[in-house]
């Protein structure tokens, strides 16, 4: 199967390891992976901060770049939710064939765990990762895409991995894109609650399907010198040897 990787601008720039892990995982599962080099950003930051025009320009670009692919995989619940949920609304008031392009592209965009389970039909990706891991379901994956227990199913089948339940898992970590700098006091308080819960559950690794949220919680885990690492779901699923 030939798939296009939408790596997302955050992963491209700050977390290339997640992109590499996604590629190696998909290849291992028999997919032919293409990376359309013209891709940049889904436009979520602009739209959600109130810069709709800039956001729409980026969204149009996205639909043009990915229009000809059968499937698009994004290692980000938030960016996938942007395309699938917010693009149709953005397109409602726009002309120039944008609505048609969205209708065509949006349904083909999958978050990684959705693609593995719903499209490839795989729940055991043959990974091995002998560590204590907890999973934060991130808001746009949980309430936007409704990933449900897909990521947990995948993690549950990783050899040696001990999955620890995260108290208050469904609560937001306080990132919210520019919310984290526009309301930093509330954002930091939300983050602190998440960090406390991560520490309470005794995990060595905090995993999520979104590096933006992980960057936020990880930033505080690091500042507090907790020793807890952050890892994207793709990076754990790509591991095949005990480390």
């Amino acid at each position: 199967m030939r798939v296009a990787l939408f790596v997302t601008c955050v992963n491209d720039t700050l977390f290339p390891g997640t992109g590499r892990a996604t590629v190696s995982l998909l290849r291992r599962l028999g997919c032919e992976v293409d990376f359309p080099a013209a891709q940049t950003c889904c436009g979520q930051m602009h739209v959600n901060t109130g810069y709709r025009d800039e956001g729409v320009r980026l969204a149009r670009r996205f639909t043009e770049v990915f229009r000809d692919y059968d499937a698009v995989v994004a290692p980000s619940g938030s960016c996938a939710a942007m395309v699938r949920e917010q693009y149709p609304r953005l397109a409602a008031g726009e002309g120039g064939g944008f609505a048609e392009a969205v209708a065509e592209v949006a349904p083909k965009v999958h978050e990684l765990s959705e693609f593995l389970i719903d499209v490839l039909g795989v729940t055991d990706v043959g990974a091995s990762f002998p560590h204590r891991v907890t999973y934060h379901p991130t808001c746009h994956s949980l309430r936007g895409l409704r990933l449900g227990d897909r990521p947990l199913t995948l993690l549950g089948n990783v050899r040696g991995l001990e999955l620890l339940p995260l108290p208050g898992a469904e609560e937001c970590c306080g990132f919210g894109g520019t919310f984290s700098v526009k309301n930093p006091e509330v954002s930091a308080a939300m983050c602190a609650a998440k960090v406390d819960n991560v520490l309470d559950c005794g995990a060595e690794v905090l995993c999520a399907a979104d590096n933006s949220c992980l960057m936020h919680v990880g930033g505080m885990l690091g500042r507090r010198k907790t020793g807890v690492r952050i890892m994207h779901l793709a990076e754990i699923l790509a591991r095949t040897e005990a480390t």
Partner: peptide, 25 residues
């Protein structure tokens, strides 16, 4: 400045040695 709103309480992620697109290339 405004970015201190983040770094007052959270570390910044480290900039990696190369971007994903450069690795792919």
């Amino acid at each position: 400045g405004p970015a201190s709103a983040w770094t007052d309480t959270r570390d910044l992620p480290e900039i990696p040695e190369e971007s994903f697109r450069d690795w792919w290339e």
